[in-house]
Design a binder for these strands. Structure first.
Lengths: 175, 175
DNA sequence: CTTGTAAGTGGACACGTGTCCGGTTAGTCT
DNA sequence: AGACTAACCGGACACGTGTCCACTTACAAG
């Protein structure tokens, strides 16, 4: 059972981080610690990396992203749903630059286990639907897609994101 | 006309950096400066970023990579040549982890001008050949390819590189 | 040979990151 | 209530990065 102050500290860290991101879109770890009134030790114990902190801050957004997939699958064929979902990811990534960092597999975090968090599972679902439909290559894993999506984290790729997604998605399709 | 000592300093910096990479595969900038017997100021003036230094160290390798493209185009059809060339890139990237950093477009360096250095030009040549042949999509730019190749810089992508290249190349092809 | 000066030098500095550890405190047990 | 202990706290620290600027020196002109 975690201590009460530890819980509130963690919550305050996330809250402060969200505020910082809204105002400056920068996220210096030591600034977060100072603003939250905790030491760096506490900050790093709760969130070992900046990505972990971002993941918590954007968890609601990630959840929404995850939730949109089944909805898309219900309304469209698998290929279209997949394509639309990728567009959703790109849109989120452009608005909130941190989202993509949040869904990236941490070092040694994703390679060992097969699942790369909720996002990985959703991609797997979309891939499975596409495979069943015959529109998506059978040799594509969620890990592959995640890796290919890595370009979204590059700053240079703000605008042509949809175009690049087009190329990537074209590559995932059967021919 | 640059000063004589400046020239030798620059050469020694590159030499030292190469040695460091061969022994530790790490490249701390201040370590390079100290080992080369120059101040950090000198180092950063000659090479504004670590990438610039890596680019110089691996220039010979990059040149070889660039030279292999026309050769491949002479021996195979454009699509095959392009595919083989991508494999070459992946092989280089796996052996010398720094090569990929060397060919990446620096911030604001590649977006403005159309050319992203020699690598960008080679890719453009391969793309043009593929377009003429009708096997490569017309809406693909060298910049796109460079961005998509960005996954090579991720550590996690050491082994499945060829598979991912397969997916990417599949995306570049016409259908 | 002396002097001028523009280029070059190199180290101090400010900043961000992540680790480590002595002190503190919440929750529990008697 | 009082004491114990394990978890927690938070700041000092060591390290790497990149910038800045006072000093030095190569080269040229008189």
């Amino acid at each position: 059972m975690p201590r009460a102050d530890a819980v509130s500290n963690r919550a305050r860290i996330v809250e402060v981080a969200r505020d910082l991101l809204n105002s400056t879109s920068e996220l210096p770890m030591n600034a977060v610690a100072k603003a939250a009134g905790v030491g760096q030790g506490t900050l790093y114990r709760n969130f070992a990396t900046r990505e972990a902190l971002l993941a918590e801050v954007y968890r609601a957004d990630v959840d929404q992203l995850v939730a949109s997939a089944p909805q898309l699958l219900a309304e469209h064929d698998a290929a279209t749903a997949f394509r639309r979902w990728l567009d959703n990811v790109a849109d989120y990534a452009r608005v909130k630059r941190g989202v993509l960092a949040a869904l990236e597999p941490g070092p040694g975090h994703a390679l060992a286990a097969g699942h790369s968090g909720p996002i990985g599972e959703v991609i797997e679902v979309l891939l499975a639907a596409g495979r069943a439909e015959g529109s998506i290559r059978a040799d594509v894993s969620a890990q592959d897609v995640l890796l290919l999506l890595g370009f979204l984290s590059r700053e240079e790729a703000a605008e042509p994101a949809h175009h690049l997604l087009d190329l990537i998605f074209n590559g995932l399709r059967t021919r």
